[in-house]
Design a protein around this nucleic acid. Structure first.
Lengths: 114, 114
DNA sequence: TTTATATTTCGTTGATTGTCAAAATATAAA
DNA sequence: TTTATATTTTGACAATCAACGAAATATAAA
């Protein structure tokens, strides 16, 4: 499949857009993302693999946890153009703004049992 | 559904990308587009309605024909950013380049019976 | 008005996809 | 090693979607 289509398909899901926007704030592990999205961890993992395979995000293993963060090194034209405007575009999306509040405020201790 | 998601979904189909790229060359009626895509006219019509509803293209009725062209008046941020880079991005897509050749060379007379 | 051409709408079908639960894998703590 | 926590993979299911053919609508020519 054409890379452009893969990119647009990856962006065609609300939960994946939520993940991308969350990661503009800071890197997050899978259970933190799961807590905010409110869906099963297996589904979160699937979404993350789609975003990683197309190059939007990268993963880093730290002990028991896998942290995901935006791939700032990508040279892809569409990917970079989209990430440039997406935060502005979703400025008035209440659910996504609520996600960002949670990202800034939650405490890892309650989610990830150490 | 969120507008951003609608836009990305509209862009997630190869035939719709082909249509958009063709229309960067000139306005086309439905039967011209059908001839190039090689799919049924009802499917072409459906693709066109999706692209029109989200604001990528506009239609103009001229007698028996409906001509479609790019919506150059759109103020949508993502839509404009994407249309800016898409032609460069799909530069090396052989099918789409073949479409553009056909758009420049075909004769309406053989397609649209007057 | 009748016929021909152009386009859209409707109903159906096969393929794709987001979701979940369960099983498998990985790592750290006990 | 055993147990607990984190993550990924697998299989199943319901919803979505691109495609087709047929029917409906629209316009112009005969």
């Amino acid at each position: 499949m054409n890379t452009a289509i893969k990119i647009f398909k990856a962006l065609s899901d609300r939960n994946r857009l939520r993940i991308l926007l969350m990661l503009t704030k800071k890197k997050l592990c899978v259970c933190e993302i799961q807590d905010i999205l409110g869906i099963t961890v297996s589904t979160v993992s699937k979404h993350l693999s789609i975003l990683r395979d197309i190059g939007f995000i990268v993963d880093n293993k730290e002990g028991k946890w896998v942290y995901y963060s935006l791939n700032t090194a990508s040279k892809d034209l569409i990917l970079n153009q989209v990430m440039l405007v997406l935060p502005f575009y979703l400025n008035d999306d209440e659910l996504i703004q609520s996600d960002l509040d949670k990202v800034n405020n939650f405490s890892r201790k309650n989610l990830c049992k150490s």
